[in-house]
Design a protein around this nucleic acid. Structure first.
Lengths: 208, 208
DNA sequence: AAATATACAAAACATTTGTTCATGTGTCAA
DNA sequence: TTGACACATGAACAAATGTTTTGTATATTT
């Protein structure tokens, strides 16, 4: 249950987060007041108290700029040049793929592997792409897109299941080819309900 | 030409960096003094002035905790939970592997892939490990160690060349087995000059 | 040897900054 | 109506924090 924040509380919190990130130091009560339009330090105090109660801040009494962010309100910005990517657990049709409910975890990776902001990650199950060097347990990174070019490796949704395969367009049909001679290609008529391309695979990570 | 810092200046700078990183706010003059063993705020001021002159800090006059790090003194630590790993270019015998001369670049990766601080990375050349899912162009991560267990994938130095292979100990001999039926294993008598194990492969990264 | 710069110490001072107190104003629910 | 919230003002206060001044000791330079 994420506690509800009022307008002013939100603005104060955002301001504090940005100040700490950009200047490396929390703002004073008066600085916050100037930002959110509260002229008395006592008014600001009130807002901060609320944020402390709701678990977004911690304060050290009688200390200048004694404001700290809690774990939940910390900005997980990551170093410049990296990205914090969610590893999706189960993928279900209809539900937005980045829904926090089905999150297996997060990894921070270089931007060279996660080029765009909306890149998502997935743990590979099965051996169907083993000849493309994609093994069970690997984490693959994909950029969301609804279409693909022949030869791309894509993450596709078939009914209720997500799968990673080579994409090949043949006339009116879409071929999802495994990279494993023991598996058969999947053929889908374009426009089949329940079928959807979720993204194109752009990177891979493995732990030995 | 990195300006020389005295003992106290170094300790003060490090303290300021850590405080900003960990607590999100710079220390006061008195806090710094307590840390580096200077009892007067004026003494601390003196040290800080030196750091400002040498380009490691900026200060805002008449502002509590008005210390900022400059670009060069900023900690590019990366988000907590990540590591900045060098990608080695050519590896030559004798030269310390992390020598900055032969650096192809750097990647930031999750600590789950780069468990220790001294993890290094290497770009894979050739197809000799393709059946282990290691392809040409992949970046592998390795933890430095001089020995290995049978079954490990290791980075080994043979004469002037670095190679990635399965490690297998057979009596008095070491077998470096490729994961590709078209390649033959390499046999090395233990103690052969010019042979050395550099590390054990712990992770892999690929860009499609 | 005298002059100068470095590296502090101590204490007094000036600002900044958090706290407290007294006193409202709206809104919403009981 | 009463009370509880969420907010607000303004002023006075106290503690934290940076600044300045005055000295001292050591080393380096002239």
């Amino acid at each position: 249950m994420p506690e509800q924040l009022t307008e002013k509380q939100q603005r104060a919190l955002k301001f504090i987060q940005l100040e700490i990130r950009d200047k490396g130091r929390p703002p004073t009560l008066r600085e916050i007041g100037g930002e959110i339009g509260v002229s008395s330090t006592n008014g600001v105090r009130y807002v901060l108290d609320a944020l402390v109660r709701k678990g977004f801040l911690e304060r050290s009494p009688m200390l200048s700029r004694g404001i700290e962010l809690t774990e939940r309100s910390m900005i997980h910005a990551g170093a410049p040049g990296t990205r914090d990517i969610p590893i999706l657990g189960r993928i279900a049709a209809g539900i937005p793929i980045t829904a926090t409910e089905n999150l297996e975890g997060r990894v921070t990776v270089d931007r060279s592997i996660a080029p765009t902001d909306d890149t998502f990650a997935l743990r590979v199950r099965g051996e169907s792409m083993i000849e493309a060097g994609i093994h069970e347990g690997d984490v693959i990174f994909a950029r969301p897109q609804r279409t693909a070019d022949t030869g791309d490796i894509v993450v596709a949704m078939i009914g209720d299941e997500a799968t990673v395969k080579y994409y090949r367009l043949m006339g009116n049909r879409i071929l999802l080819e495994p990279a494993n001679s023991r598996f058969k290609p999947i053929v889908v008529e374009s426009g089949t309900p329940g079928f959807q391309i979720l993204g194109k695979v752009v990177g891979l990570m493995r732990k030995f």
